[in-house]
Computed example of a mutant assay.
Amino acid sequence: MNWLQLGNLQGISTSPSFTVPLQVDGALTKISWKYSSPPGTKIIVQTRLSFSNGADWTEWRICTNGGAIPDLSSADKIDHPQMMYRVIISSPDYAAVPAFEEITFTFEPVIIIDNTGDLDCKPEIWITKEGNGDFSIVNLSSRAEEFKFSDLIDQETIYIDNEQEDIETSLAATYRYSNFNDNYLNLPAGSNLLKLSGKAKVQFRYQFKYL
């Protein structure tokens, strides 16, 4: 115990463990918090994780406000891990009291397709839109290239053959080339991390190519 703790100028508040209700191939994560901190005061937030239902825990890791959650890579599979956080508050005197207001954890699921072939793969995709609006896929592993359709209709199904650059829709007498950004989805050899935006049911079909 240091002199700040002895003088009641430092406090630590630890959360109970809780389950992250997510089972996905991977996810983009973010931790952020709101606080007020008078000059000279300090607030530190740390997290730790358990992938064994609480039997073992990672070390406490210092977090960055607005940064990713430590010990969770975007390519790591997430299957309901346990999580804890703690807040360490310190002040140089009793008159300056920082206030920790709230904390938010964000998990944005991604799809991981591991192209084990030697050449690029251009999959077939079926997209059934839920609600009117846009839909896009960004390959975060390939220069963040975006594959995007605008102004799709609720329950409309779009079929895209990225190899042949062919687009079909379930709507009669309708063509969707003008709603497409003309950037067909390409999966280079190796791991491809795909971020999907827009509510829809999506199905992929692909075959890897070898030399």
Rank of each mutant, 00 (worst) to 15 (best):
I127N: 07
D120K: 09
N186H: 11
Q23S: 15
L28A: 03
S170Q: 06
F135Y: 13
F149R: 02
S91Q: 09
N139I: 05
W126E: 12
Q203K: 13
Q82K: 12
T157E: 00
A55M: 15
A144V: 01
F135D: 09
N8G: 07
I43C: 10
I113E: 00
A172R: 14
E168D: 05
T174G: 12
D76N: 06
K77A: 13
K42M: 11
N192Q: 13
A200P: 05
T174A: 14
G190H: 04
W3A: 14
T47A: 00
L28D: 04
T29K: 11
F180G: 03
F100P: 06
Q23E: 15
K209P: 10
Q23H: 10
L72H: 14
S150A: 01
A144I: 02
Y177D: 14
A68G: 11
Y175L: 10
N115S: 04
L49H: 08
D120G: 09
S32G: 08
G40E: 04
L72G: 07
T128P: 09
T64N: 13
L194N: 08
N183P: 07
D166A: 14
K209F: 15
L187F: 00
S178T: 10
S50R: 04
D120Y: 07
D71T: 01
Y35S: 11
Y177Q: 15
I127F: 09
G133F: 02
I160H: 04
E145W: 15
L211S: 08
R143Q: 07
W3Q: 10
D161V: 08
K129N: 13
K122C: 03
K209N: 14
S32P: 12
Y177K: 15
F107G: 03
M84P: 08
V97W: 04
L193H: 09
S73T: 10
Y177R: 10
Y159E: 01
L9Q: 02
D76H: 06
A55L: 15
L9S: 00
C121T: 03
H80E: 09
A68V: 05
